[in-house]
Amino acid sequence: MSLALLIEQFLNGLQLGVMLFLIAAGLTLIFGVMGLINLAHGSLYMVGAFACAAVAAATGSFWLGLVASLAAAAAAGALMEVAIIRRLYARDHLDQVLATFALILIFSEGTRWLFGSFPLYLDIPPLLQGAVALPGGGQYPLYRLAIIGVGVLVAIGLYLLIGRTRLGMRIRAGESDREMIAALGIDIRSLYTIVFAFGAALAGLAGALVGALQSVQVGMGEPALILAFVVIVIGGIGSIKGALIGAILVGLVDTMGRFLLPKALALMMPATQAGPVGAALASMLIYIVMALILAFRPSGLFSARA
């Protein structure tokens, strides 16, 4: 095992983590501000991917597709908030789970109705095609480096937005004391719609970016949703910082587990068994890590509301 391979795998883990952060950021924001469990977050991710693929196919431009994904997901989010989600804030988590589970079904079949049953084509823009050389002799896809870049920008942007802007101040106020913010004369209804649409747009952006690397198909949101939940629970629900660190932890643990576990087991058992057993353990690994973290820190690493 060479150092170049190890560096490349580390980068892969980091990049998977950043990808997960993009998906999880909107989810944790919405939970932090409104206290809402949104199972349909994965559907918004799917909306972003489909919008991007459809517009990119029609216009030939990935970048226009990216804009469309933001717009479509934000619009779908705003619509969803006004029509349905708004009525759920005062309900308990169970009603939220049922209603947003219903939304998953509706979005999945609705998307299939609109776009058909076959996966769509979405490719990386020409500008980001190809791979760049790494120090130590390896190569790394440019697009994946770009995703790391976008993730860092989104993290910084969110930090500034919440820490430095008027909207951010209201969001923080909303998180800590809802009555107070209403008493201050801030229109909490439109604030919630804006935050929800913003979280949805983040999910849509993630869907478009990840969609270029994966298969744009109905049902793509569900595995992403589960991983996003793992990430925000590890990080502490409502905490953007927690989501970032949780995402990178999950990305690294998953990648390194897939890479190293079969090799480690091969030292102890025949190679033909080590492969499948190692892979089985690797697929359980992030859940084991999550259970361990919650066992010792029941509210995640950086809980916003401990």
């Binding site: 095992m1 060479s2 170049a4 391979l5 490349e8 795998q9 892969n12 883990g13 990049q15 998977l16 990808m19 390896g138 190569q139 994946r144 990840v210 690397l213 994966q214 298969s215 793509m220 595995p223 992403a224 990648t255 897939r258 890479f259 079969p262 190679a271 033909t272 492969g275 499948p276 190692g278 892979a279 690797a282 697929s283």
Partner: peptide, 21 residues
């Protein structure tokens, strides 16, 4: 090499790196 991936896996960067090496 003989590698078994996770069912439903969507990211193959780690496996591709192994193939390269």
């Amino acid at each position: 090499g003989e590698v078994y991936t996770q069912v439903g896996q969507t990211d193959y960067a780690a496996e591709i790196a192994e193939i390269r090496a």
